[in-house]
Amino acid sequence: MPMLDIQHLTKSFGGVQALNDLDFHVDKGEIVSVIGPNGAGKTSFFNTVTGYFSPDEGQILFNGVNISGHEPHEITELGIARTFQNVRLFPDMTVLENVMVAQHCRTTTGIFGTLLNTRSFRREEAQIEANAKDVLSFFGKRLQGYRWDQPASVLSYANRRRLEIARAMATEPELILLDEPTAGMNPKETAELTDLIRQLRDDRGYTVVLIEHEMRVVRDVSDRVVVLDHGEKIAEGDFETVSHNPDVIEAYLGRPAEHTDE
């Protein structure tokens, strides 16, 4: 059974067909890239899977459970985490707090535990902090030490992207959806992050779906590539196959006058 199994997913806004009868699956332990030209419906796809949009038709099975129509926070709790295309951190909260917040759905202490300062509350707070620091250590020294206490708003762009991934990891998901994780990064940072994405699976055991524009990253990390255009899947396979698929080239470049393999 695939971990994420999407069947006939359809979503339209007014007259615009964002997703059209999309079938898609991800197996446990895979890294799948979703590519496609701008407006192909990639982010709509993420938003639908994570519950921000409810689909018009079709279903989303996560570990065999239909999750379509659930609220985003329930989906996070079920084990799907995501990042946002235009980095969205909590700017006034510190780096550490940003990650600690993400442990919300894995913890239970309510108001009364907090007020009575129960032992389980203190243990849980300590655990939250330890988990947060552990997750941040994934990025080496980038988000360590004094950075813990800095507000997220002073971080550099690349560090913000890293923090967003850390936050997604802290929700303890099985599946992580990364929306253009390397956008705005320089080549060195991109290369570093490419390694990290692989480590997400190899060391931490997450299954990863990413939307990416940078073809080098796609080539380096993906087990499988899915190409979307106008909300439809136009190709699927490993990077080599897909990159030579005439439909894909056409979607990216428009219909060429005469077509040659590159």
Partner: peptide, 9 residues
Amino acid sequence: ATTPTRTFK
């Protein structure tokens, strides 16, 4: 073709 079968919430 499947229609969305939602779990009643």
